[in-house]
Computed example of a mutant assay.
Amino acid sequence: MFANKINLSPPSYGLAIFNKANQCTFSSKYAPLLLRGSFSLAKNPGSPASFSTPFDRPLVPLGKWGAWVFAGSSYEVFHAGMVMNEGTLTTGSAGRISSMPNAGGNVTSMITTMSLPLLDARNYFDGI
């Protein structure tokens, strides 16, 4: 990400990130995306992802990686996001999607187990 008023333009292919003012704040046209490994989230919500890195400042992609369901008298359904705590990565409930009555059905949480990129923060941020 850039904060020094540089005028970035999106690449013809690759990754571009825009802020709320529709300004390009990151472009893979200028800084290479250096893949340093990959990892997969655990299938069960709250279970730790299994990955190890040769570096101490991993960057992981943020996003919604499934649905987390809490069952009780009703089903409370949330987006599943990521939680990182001292190098342990798990899924956590992010934003509420819906609520529905529990009619004895089988509604379960679903987390993606696809391979996700792992980056080293030292390639992008000075002084860390």
Score class of each variant (00 low, 15 high):
113 T>C: 00
12 S>N: 15
19 N>M: 01
109 S>N: 04
109 S>G: 02
14 G>N: 06
96 R>V: 12
106 N>P: 05
50 S>I: 06
39 F>K: 04
36 R>L: 00
3 A>W: 05
72 G>H: 11
105 G>T: 09
79 H>W: 09
46 G>K: 06
45 P>W: 02
83 V>S: 15
39 F>L: 02
85 N>E: 13
16 A>N: 07
49 A>L: 04
4 N>Y: 07
102 N>T: 05
44 N>H: 15
78 F>Y: 13
97 I>E: 10
72 G>D: 12
85 N>G: 09
39 F>T: 05
127 G>D: 05
41 L>F: 00
27 S>Y: 04
81 G>W: 00
7 N>G: 14
13 Y>F: 12
63 G>E: 02
114 M>H: 14
89 L>D: 03
58 P>H: 03
41 L>V: 00
29 K>G: 12
58 P>Q: 02
6 I>Y: 08
127 G>F: 00
105 G>A: 06
4 N>K: 10
58 P>V: 00
97 I>D: 09
20 K>Q: 15
89 L>V: 04
36 R>M: 00
86 E>G: 11
46 G>F: 01
108 T>K: 14
106 N>C: 06
61 P>H: 05
63 G>N: 03
83 V>T: 14
109 S>E: 00
17 I>S: 09
47 S>I: 06
121 A>N: 10
3 A>F: 07
12 S>E: 15
109 S>M: 00
47 S>G: 10
97 I>A: 11
87 G>I: 04
126 D>C: 11
17 I>F: 06
78 F>S: 08
46 G>T: 05
61 P>N: 06
117 P>M: 00
105 G>R: 07
3 A>D: 13
76 E>P: 07
92 G>I: 01
87 G>Y: 01
55 F>L: 02
79 H>L: 09
36 R>T: 03
115 S>R: 12
5 K>T: 07
62 L>G: 11
19 N>I: 02
43 K>R: 14
29 K>M: 10
128 I>R: 10
56 D>M: 13
97 I>F: 09
21 A>M: 12
90 T>V: 10
128 I>K: 08
18 F>Y: 15
22 N>S: 10
